[in-house]
């Protein structure tokens, strides 16, 4: 039947992928032993993303399969990005409503002669 026509991932490929994943795990642990300052998080995330893409494309067969499934995954990931980004838009700027430090409208009003009524 038709399922016999599915792409069969060769054992050689699978073995190569698991080897890469193992090495990358060691790399990420090793990288974490050094303090790279603000690069700590991006490097850890970059390595994790590379690992995940290997699992997705080869182990899960997304590379060989139906493109619709890749689109589904992409849409899901976009939503995760939306979720994180928009919440950070709030949490990173929390309190800016009442921020009246230098350079704000309030202050410029105070320095302007028209605002002498203060």
């Amino acid at each position: 039947m038709s399922q016999a026509e599915h792409h069969i991932v060769p054992i050689k490929t699978l073995t190569a992928v698991i080897a890469v994943l193992g090495v990358l795990t060691i790399v990420t642990v090793a990288a974490a032993q050094f303090d790279l300052g603000s690069f700590n998080v991006p490097i850890a995330l970059l390595i994790a993303t590379i690992k995940a893409s290997f699992v997705i494309s080869i182990f899960m067969g997304l590379k060989y399969g139906n493109k619709t499934n890749a689109l589904i995954l992409a849409v899901g990931l976009i939503m995760v990005v939306v979720f994180v980004t928009f919440i950070l838009l709030d949490t990173e700027f929390r309190g800016d409503t009442s921020a009246t430090e230098s350079g704000t409208i309030m202050q410029s009003e105070q320095t302007m002669p028209a605002a002498e009524s203060h």
Binding site: M79, F86, L89, D90, E92, F93, D96, T97
Partner: peptide, 18 residues
């Protein structure tokens, strides 16, 4: 529809930026 949920929260204390 996924990009607008914060309009329910204009007076919640979320940042003005958002």
């Amino acid at each position: 529809g996924f990009l607008v949920w914060g309009h329910h929260m204009f007076v919640s204390g979320q940042s003005a930026t958002s």
